[in-house]
Structure formats: structure tokens, C-alpha cells
Computed example of a mutant assay.
Amino acid sequence: MTTALREKLWAYIVENNPELVFSLQEEHSASRYITEKVNAVLPLAEQLFAEGMPYYAIEEQCLKVMTEDLKPSRYQYIRSVIEEEFPEHYKRLKENGALTYEVVNLIEACKGIFNDFDFTVENEDNRHLRYAIIGQVHDYLV
């Protein structure tokens, strides 16, 4: 189970939080981070197993717990803004293989906006947040 949880967590981070991947790799702490996250949910996994929960459901529940502090994804948010509001730039960046790199740069450029709006799952649909991010992305791309 530990290996499966490690793989699922890493896949989630790569897909939704590549800025964290870069940071962890820079600090040579990816393995430690993953190990700490997995070890923290092992008691939950054991409890759910003892209760007779199916293996796949245990993994799903553990992944949910391990990724709570990684949501919502600033990466996915900015990526969707570029795709929806700047489709030409999105297409060009994707074709050039620079989309992930530029979105990670934009996360840093939009950090103040995300902090000002206290970006959370509850307010990720805030239109004022979206307009502010669109403006910052526009300034960055154009």
C-alpha cells in the first residue's frame, strides 16, 4: 500500500502542483516530503482496512487526506485562465513545450493576488479573483 500511495501522491503533485515538484527537486527533498505525507496517513489506512473498506477506496481516501493542503491548484487555475482567455498563447505555449514552465512562472507573478483573495476551494469561483488573475496573466503574456 505504501508504494501505491507514494506513486499516487507523486502523480497528483506532478499534475496539479508542478511548482511544488520544482521546489522539492531543487531542495532535494521530494522523497522526504512524499514519505512524510504517506506515513501520516498510514494509521488511517490501517483503520479503514480493519473496517473492511476496499483497497481502492482506502487509497482514494488517503490521497484525499494527503492532498488537502494542495487544493485548490494554482497551477490548474492559471492554466485554465490561459486556455479560456488567451487561447492563442495557450496553443503556442503548449506546442513549444513551455506551458508548464510559464504557468509556474505565473504562479509566482500572481502570488500576491492569490494571497490577497485568500485563494481556497470555497472562493476559487470568485469573479473578482478571476479578473485580477486575467489582468496579471495579460500583463505577463502580452
Rank of each mutant, 00 (worst) to 15 (best):
I78S: 12
L9T: 04
E102V: 04
Y33S: 14
I134Y: 01
H138P: 00
E83I: 10
K111S: 12
Y55P: 05
A4E: 07
R74K: 13
L141P: 01
M53E: 06
Y55S: 07
G112E: 15
K94M: 00
M53Y: 07
L63D: 05
S23Y: 08
A11Y: 07
T2R: 15
V65T: 02
D118W: 09
T3P: 11
L48T: 01
I58Y: 00
K64F: 08
I58L: 02
E59N: 04
R6C: 10
L70S: 00
R6Y: 02
V104D: 13
S23R: 06
D139M: 06
K37R: 15
V142N: 15
F22T: 15
V38R: 01
E84L: 01
A50H: 14
E83M: 14
V104Y: 06
F117E: 02
R79S: 06
A45S: 15
V65I: 04
N115A: 14
T2D: 09
L5V: 04
V121F: 08
S80I: 08
T120D: 11
L63E: 13
I78H: 09
I133G: 05
W10A: 06
F114V: 07
V65L: 07
E83F: 12
V104R: 04
Q76A: 13
Y131F: 13
L141E: 02
V38N: 10
E68N: 04
M1F: 10
S29P: 01
G135H: 11
E27H: 11
Q25P: 03
N105M: 12
I107V: 11
E124R: 15
L63V: 12
E84C: 02
M1R: 03
G112H: 02
I34T: 07
K37I: 05
I58N: 01
I113R: 00
L24F: 05
E19D: 13
E26G: 08
F49Y: 12
E19L: 04
K71R: 08
F117Q: 08
K91V: 02
V137Q: 10
C110I: 03
Q61G: 03
A30W: 06
E85T: 09
R6M: 07
M53N: 08
R127F: 08
Y75R: 04
L70M: 02
E88V: 11
D69L: 06
Q61A: 15
P54W: 14
K8S: 10
G135T: 04
L42N: 06
